[in-house]
Amino acid sequence: MSSLYDFTATSLAGEEVPIRRFAGQVLLIVNTASACGFTPQYRGLEALYREFAPKGFAVLGFPCNQFGGQEPGTASEIDAFCAGKYDVTFPMFAKIDVNGAAAHPLYKFLRSEKSGLLGSAIKWNFTKFLVDRSGRVVSRRAPTTKPEALKKEIEALL
């Protein structure tokens, strides 16, 4: 059986990052997009990151172009957009698929750990997985759930 910490992902800068690097932290893992109606959630995600990072919390952003082609950019374009428009400082990763045969193994794992209301497939950008310090996926939240709505749950895990 796999653990969250068995996976690696490529950063926007092209570095292979072992997810194990985040062991012992509470994580919010989110599939993102730059041209989505939910894109302004970057502000809330960054606010959570800045508030709770000193206590052992991280947001991990995974751009995805599978929903309406809303993340068409290159890694450098995504990085420039996130940094320039939303001052994102939390770890962002290279664009991935979250559904289908080419889905990133991390997302296959997350989906198997917590199904959504209509099954395991990710329905849209900004689906959120909250992970405790031991690497257990404790909740999955819909794209409509604003990051600030998770504050109490994150605090409880910290």
Rank of each mutant, 00 (worst) to 15 (best):
T145R: 10
F81S: 02
C36G: 09
S115F: 07
I78H: 09
C82E: 03
Q70E: 14
R133T: 08
N65V: 02
F90Q: 06
A121C: 11
A23M: 06
D97T: 08
N65S: 07
V88G: 09
Y86Q: 04
F126W: 06
A83M: 02
G56Y: 01
A75Q: 07
C64M: 11
L118N: 12
F38P: 05
A83V: 14
E46F: 04
R50I: 11
T144M: 14
P54D: 06
F90P: 01
T145V: 15
K95H: 10
D97P: 08
T32Q: 04
P143K: 09
T89M: 04
V137P: 05
E77Y: 02
Q66P: 07
C82P: 01
V88M: 09
K123I: 13
Q41N: 05
K123Q: 14
A103N: 09
R50P: 09
F38Y: 15
L28Y: 03
S134C: 04
F67W: 01
F67M: 06
F129T: 11
F81G: 02
R21P: 03
A142E: 15
A103P: 07
D132N: 15
P91S: 11
D132I: 08
R133K: 13
F93P: 03
S112Q: 14
A149C: 02
I78L: 13
N125E: 01
P40G: 05
A101Y: 10
S134V: 10
